[in-house]
């Protein structure tokens, strides 16, 4: 049974002003995939607070993102995030940022290519407006520049 996280979050943060969850009742925007995924350049982004080498950690309400070179290894990466238990992701980033797995799928030809760089930010940004109006448009610009055909977003 899927866990109901909205009531759990409400309970966990009951000392704070209740969070106003994003509820979209309109049909989602739709961009058809124009070619097989085996010919698509796929961009990867995680909200798991992944840091590359000496990149600065994220801070509260941080709507910035970091660029992670696609060839980064486990030794290059660390995790900074307040909103989930990060031990497993710290010991293997592929739990929330499957960079090594995506490289393998690229090598096997399952995807046409893995865009370079990948991206990371720290989820748990309280202001959904900030995400919609600041973070998201910047990422869209990045994806256009990278000529990405598909975008794989992994939360934490």
């Amino acid at each position: 049974m899927a866990v109901a996280y909205i009531p759990r979050t409400r309970e966990l943060y009951k000392a704070y002003t209740p969070y106003r969850w994003v509820v979209n009742t309109d049909a989602p925007p739709w961009t058809p995939l124009e070619k097989p995924i085996a010919r698509c350049r796929v961009a990867l982004m995680s909200s798991g607070g992944i840091l590359y080498r000496d990149q600065p950690r994220f801070h509260r309400e941080d709507a910035t993102y970091h660029m992670i070179p696609k060839n980064a290894t486990q030794a290059d990466l660390s995790v900074w995030h307040f909103g989930y238990r990060t031990e497993d992701a710290a010991s293997d980033h592929n739990c929330v940022f499957p960079l090594a797995r995506m490289r393998e799928l690229e090598a096997e030809g399952v995807i046409g290519g893995l865009a370079d760089p990948a991206y990371s930010f720290m989820g748990g940004i309280y202001s959904s407006r900030k995400v919609r109006d600041e973070l998201a448009p910047r990422i869209v610009d990045e994806l256009r520049r990278a000529h990405a055909d598909a975008f794989y977003l992994v939360p934490a």
């Binding site: 899927a2 996280y5 509820v23 979209n24 961009t31 238990r85 497993d88």
Partner: peptide, 30 residues
């Protein structure tokens, strides 16, 4: 990717894949 079905249903993105694992493991066990 998501492990929080109720949140994803509310946000209603164009495409999603749900994995019923604890948060922090949306693409698997370490």
């Amino acid at each position: 990717m998501t492990s929080a079905l109720d949140i994803t249903r509310a946000v209603n993105p164009p495409r999603a894949v749900f994995l019923n694992f604890p948060l922090g493991h949306q693409t698997g066990r370490p």
